[in-house]
């Protein structure tokens, strides 16, 4: 099996009008959604979501161990991913587990504004490939993950794969709303998983400018088998 190597593309610095739409579930979303001008620094952006193999290599190199291991890489067996799943996006990691990976390679998670720009490009595309929903260009409703280099016709304007579907992706922010506070993150891009009920989290091809608010409650709760990540690196 050919294991996918990460590839980065350079994205030049720019500014754009950032506007994000909160997917309405009860509770609302206490953070800036724009429209506001944002500056995007020059970045090297991962073309692929981080894979099981990439995360395995990270563990070998770093010796990283999370403080609370419950549900950490729970889909792996005996300390490694299952044979044949090396190119699937790594899941069952927390935002901190993802940050540790990124930091090891001198990278970080993209901010919300960066992620959206990487997915939508200068034209504010609704989906990575354009403005029309098209299930042939993304892995949604299939109920299973695919290799991170699938759906080449669905890449973003910068050539990034699977920014819609396959796995939700972490962004860098950990939000805190003060007062009787809650910690929450926002997820991007949607997933191949499809929960059965109207009141479950919406799945499918999530538009580039939508995010999903998720309350945080300990590492075991905060690891999901449908959420992965990709990294960026600031460059001159």
């Amino acid at each position: 099996m050919n294991l996918i190597k990460q590839v980065s593309v350079r994205v030049e610095g720019t500014s754009y009008i950032y506007r994000c739409v909160h997917r309405i579930k009860e509770g609302d979303c206490q953070m800036e959604h724009g429209p506001v001008p944002v500056e995007i620094k020059p970045l090297l952006a991962d073309v692929f979501a981080t894979t099981n193999e990439m995360y395995y290599q990270f563990l070998q190199e770093s010796g990283y161990e999370p403080a609370n291991p419950r549900n950490f890489l729970k889909h792996w067996q005996d300390g490694k991913y299952v044979e044949g799943e090396g190119n699937l996006p790594v899941v069952n990691v927390t935002q901190d587990d993802a940050r540790a990976f990124a930091a090891h390679y001198g990278k970080r998670l993209p901010t919300e504004a960066e992620w959206q720009y990487l997915a939508a490009g200068d034209a504010h595309f609704k989906y990575p490939w354009g403005n029309k929903k098209d299930y042939s260009k993304c892995n949604v409703y299939s109920m299973k993950l695919c290799d991170v280099d699938q759906y080449p016709e669905g890449v973003s304007p910068f050539g990034l794969y699977n920014m819609c579907g396959n796995v939700w992706e972490f962004t860098d922010e950990l939000n805190y709303d003060g007062d009787k506070h809650h910690y929450f993150i926002t997820l991007r891009g949607g997933t191949s998983y499809n929960a059965p009920d109207y009141w479950h989290t919406e799945c499918g091809a999530i538009p580039n400018d939508y995010h999903l608010k998720v309350h945080q409650l300990g590492d075991a709760m905060n690891r999901y088998e449908t959420v992965g990540f990709r990294c960026v690196k600031e460059v001159e």
């Binding site: 579930k25 009860e26 509770g27 939700w168 997820l187 997933t191 998983y193 929960a195 009920d197 009141w199 479950h200 989290t201 919406e202 799945c203 999903l212 998720v214 309350h215 409650l217 999901y224 088998e225 449908t226 959420v227």
Partner: peptide, 11 residues
């Protein structure tokens, strides 16, 4: 402890 968080994955 569940809604509106249920449904991100199959838990």
């Amino acid at each position: 402890n569940q809604y509106p968080r249920l449904g991100i994955d199959k838990r």
